[in-house]
Design a protein around this nucleic acid. Structure first.
Length: 272
DNA sequence: ACGCCCTCCTGTTGGC
DNA sequence: TGCCAACAGGAGGGCG
């Protein structure tokens, strides 16, 4: 499940191979992704030079020297790998970005929840990016900010921190993990949290995401980084997918419930 | 503005 | 052993 650490791991893996390269071609095999891929996109990226590989929220941004940006979302099951140009494609390999280096960037996504856009001009103005909240690892995401945003919000804190208009990059895995780390139960109403609890949540989100980035993200099923290797944060999960298993801190069985159509996990002893 | 639920999709899992 | 339903979820969109 690519969340921020998985997308950032992909960005770091791809960037050394992509930056400065010319796009020889974009071979699109399947345009039915989250949104239909524009049929003119391959022609429009062809011949452009990649000047930078950036990330905003869970989007990868390939800045091109033609004042355009190729924007890729990995969806739920997507991965982008660096491969030799002659590697035979397999099932769910939806497109290849061919570089002038005998290498390709190959997108594989069984569930097709991913997306690919070509943006003219400033990508921050694109509708999918323009109303997003701050990056969780940025200084602007601090206790004051989250405290202000939680006022008057009745929604459960777990759903609140997963809202990309509040803060980006926190998906289902890291929301549960961060709330465990902060000692706050996921079902608490956002507006009823104490100031200190909000500060703990901010610190926990930053700590959990930074640790996950360090070990290459979390691989549950599909996810692999640009080099094809899985992420190793799964071994460090305290609550996610551990229903009934003993808490790593106090041995109380971990609980699970569905919250906002997503599984939530928590320790009833360590979290209040 | 907010909160809630639906939708897209396929591989895996579990029950009968 | 085989079939089918349930489940997983990022996030936009629609509705009240």
């Amino acid at each position: 499940m690519p969340e921020l650490p998985e997308v950032e791991t992909t960005r770091r893996g791809v960037e050394p191979f992509a930056r400065g390269r010319l796009v020889r071609a974009l071979r699109l095999r399947e345009s039915r992704l989250r949104w239909p891929v524009d049929a003119t996109l391959p022609r429009r990226v062809s011949g452009a030079r990649i000047t930078a590989v950036e990330r905003r929220a869970k989007y990868l941004l390939f800045r091109l020297d033609t004042d355009t940006t190729l924007m890729l979302h990995l969806g739920m099951s997507g991965s982008l790998r660096v491969l030799p140009v002659d590697t035979p494609h397999r099932k769910h390999d939806h497109f290849d970005l061919e570089l002038d280096s005998e290498r390709i960037l190959r997108f594989n996504d069984p569930r097709r929840f991913g997306s690919l856009h070509l943006i003219e001009g400033d990508p921050a103005q694109h509708p999918l990016l323009s109303s997003l909240g701050p990056e969780p690892l940025a200084a602007s995401f601090d206790a004051d900010y989250l405290w202000q945003r939680t006022r008057k919000r009745r929604v459960a804190i777990k759903q609140f921190v997963m809202n990309a208009q509040v803060v980006v990059g926190v998906g289902n895995i890291y929301a549960s993990e961060a709330l465990f780390c902060a000692g706050v139960r996921p079902g608490r109403a956002a507006r009823l949290l104490k100031r200190g609890e909000v500060a703990a949540i901010v610190a926990a989100i930053k700590r959990v995401l930074a640790m996950a980035v360090e070990v290459g993200g979390t691989t549950l099923r599909d996810y692999v980084g640009a080099d094809g290797n899985p992420g190793y944060f799964r071994q460090k999960l305290f609550v996610y997918e551990r229903a009934g298993e003993p808490c790593r801190s106090c041995e109380t069985p971990i609980r699970q419930r569905v919250q906002g159509q997503r599984s939530t996990y928590w320790c009833p002893t360590c979290q209040r």
